[in-house]
Every structure is written in C-alpha cells, then in structure tokens.
Nucleic acid binder design. Structure first.
Length: 309
DNA sequence: TGGCGTCAAGGTTGC
DNA sequence: GCAACCTTGACGCCA
C-alpha cells in the first residue's frame, strides 16, 4: 500500500477547497475561543471524510492526517466542543471508511513533541499531544494498535543518549493505552540523532515500540548498515502488523542543487520494489497524492461530486 | 483580493 | 551566549 501525507492537492484546489488542516493563530484563539475551534473541527472532520472517500475511489490505501484536525485541542477536551455530537458522528463515519476499505491511517505530531525532553513542562505538553492524537483515533473508532500509528521522533540527544533513551522509555511506559499502544518511533534525519539500530536497541527492545524506517533519513545516520539491513531490523519490531516505512528522495537528486540535503523532492522517481513488497509506504513529497497515483492505477475516476455526503 | 510577513510549542549547531 | 536553521503550509494583516 502506498500513501501520502496531509494535503490532497486535487481537493485543495476544488471549489470549495476540501482540506482537514484548518488552524488558527494564537490571537484568533484568544478572541474567538472554543466556539471557533468547534467550527473549524467540524469542517476539518467533514473534509477528512471527503478525502478518505477520494482515496478509496482512487485505490489509495494509506493516509496520514494533519495534526491540525482539532485546532488548539491542548486547551480543551473534545466533549467540551458545543457541536461534539456532530463531530463524533462524522468521525464515526470516517472510521467506518478506513476500516471497511482496509486503509492504513496515521498521525505524525510535529517537532515540538519532545517526549524525552529534560524539561518537565515540555514533556507534559508533548504527552498531552500524543494523548490527544490517541483520543482522535478513539473517536474514529480505530483499534489501539500500530495498525493506526502515532509516529514520533525522539528528535534530540541532550548530550547524553543513554539518559535520553531512559527518559523516553519511562514516558512511554506511563502513557495511557490509547497513546502507548499506537506509538511508533522514527529514525531522525541527522547524524548526531537517532538511527534505526539505536532505536531498535534502546527503545523497541525495552518497551516494544515499533520503529518506522525512513529511507531518506537512514542516509544521514546509517551506522554502517545498508538500507535493506536497516529496514529488516526495523520491520522486525512490528510484530504481527505490516511495517510502515517513509520514502522520499532528496531534492538535490532531482536537480535542485541549492536544496539542503534533508529537503524532499517534489516527486519520487521510483519506490524500491523490495520495500513495497514488505511494507506500507508513506511517500513524503510535495507532489502529495499525485506521487502515489503515478504508481497506483486508478480504480475509479472522480465523477461523483466531492461534496457528496 | 492578492501579496507577504509571521506563526504556541524545542533543540542543535556554528560563530 | 546568541542567531540561524530545521520544515511548511496557512493564517491574517495591510495596501
């Protein structure tokens, strides 16, 4: 299965635009508050339903949803939303589409999420973030398993990797099941940070958290392992779940010589067959759904109106 | 309405 | 010790 992240450019350019990442800045949150958050959440959830149906109609079986699905959710609990019942009903329908079509569905909290931080308040905020992602997956009615993962990075070393791994594992052990049972950890994109073998040894082996193999990131910290070796190592941590991997190609390979090494290209030329055969592949490229469709023959044209309910 | 400066949050690295 | 950078789309002010 191949997938893409967050924005569907086809539906984003539709009139009206369909997207599930409506957000607001701090000043707006302070003036408009939870009423506006409720409005945005309802629109996001309704458009998520449209995006999932579009994916289903186009044979795309893997989707990563934006973390802006519920804007400012750190400041309130879902049932406090005045339109909670409506949101819950639409979320239930979204979950139904995902389950009925056998789709993979994931979240990827952004780089502010630092579960191994040395600062108690940062850890607290980060834990709250993964808890909320877990609540959203519960609302969708999806299993508490890495079939529907919440994908994080450790993303730092704090000058002491052993102590960082200890803190990370301690935090994971204390997470509620809705977050812990879905958490997966991905290799970082810097030489000094966390490679696949380090995550397998220091995290998976101790707390059972599966490791997401990011193909492009592996080139920054390969630790002497080939892509295939690192993939196999990560895949073995997924138990009875099919592993998820992230695949992208560096912009420099695609002729953008000014790009930084970690920058993603607009598209990907090819996904290695051995990778596709053994894992569900999240393609990370600016081309979004178009990068997937070039490899997946369309099952249906999008004749039906994207506004259908 | 279009253009563009700015955006809640952390951490690393280079100077 | 401080500034730049990471990554990125989109918010929202302003002309």
């Amino acid at each position: 299965m191949l997938g893409y992240a967050a924005m569907n450019r086809t539906l984003r350019e539709h009139d009206p635009p369909r997207r599930c990442n409506r957000d607001m800045q701090k000043a707006t949150w302070e003036t408009k508050g939870i009423e506006y958050a409720a409005e945005l959440t309802a629109q996001n959830m309704e458009d998520l339903r449209t995006i999932l149906r579009w994916n289903q109609d186009h044979g795309i079986g893997f989707y990563r949803c934006s973390s802006a699905l519920v804007p400012w959710n750190s400041q309130f609990e879902l049932p406090e939303l005045p339109n909670y019942e409506h949101i819950r009903e639409v979320a239930r329908e979204c979950g139904e589409i995902i389950r009925d079509s056998g789709m993979r569905f994931s979240f990827h909290p952004d780089f502010w999420c630092k579960l191994a931080s040395e600062s108690a308040s940062t850890v607290e905020r980060s834990v709250e973030s993964v808890r909320h992602h877990g609540r959203w997956l519960d609302l969708l009615g999806l299993d508490r398993s890495p079939r529907y993962p919440i994908n994080v990075h450790i993303g730092a070393h704090y000058g002491d990797k052993a102590a960082t791994a200890d803190r990370f594992c301690d935090v994971i052990r204390d997470l509620p099941p809705r977050a812990r049972d879905r958490l997966v950890v991905e290799n970082d994109d810097a030489e000094s940070l966390w490679s696949v073998p380090e995550l397998v040894e220091n995290v998976s082996a101790r707390v059972g958290t599966p490791v997401t193999f990011d193909y492009h990131h592996h080139s920054f910290a390969d630790r002497g392992y080939t892509y295939r070796e690192a993939f196999t190592m990560a895949a073995d941590t997924w138990g009875d779940q099919r592993p998820i991997v992230h695949y992208s190609e560096p912009a420099r390979l695609h002729g953008d010589h000014d790009a930084n090494p970690p920058d993603h290209a607009d598209t990907v030329a090819a996904v290695p067959a051995w990778l596709r055969a053994q894992a569900d592949v999240m393609i990370e490229s600016h081309g979004k759904e178009a990068s997937v469709l070039q490899f997946e023959p369309r099952k249906h044209e999008w004749h039906t109106s994207p506004t259908r309910r």
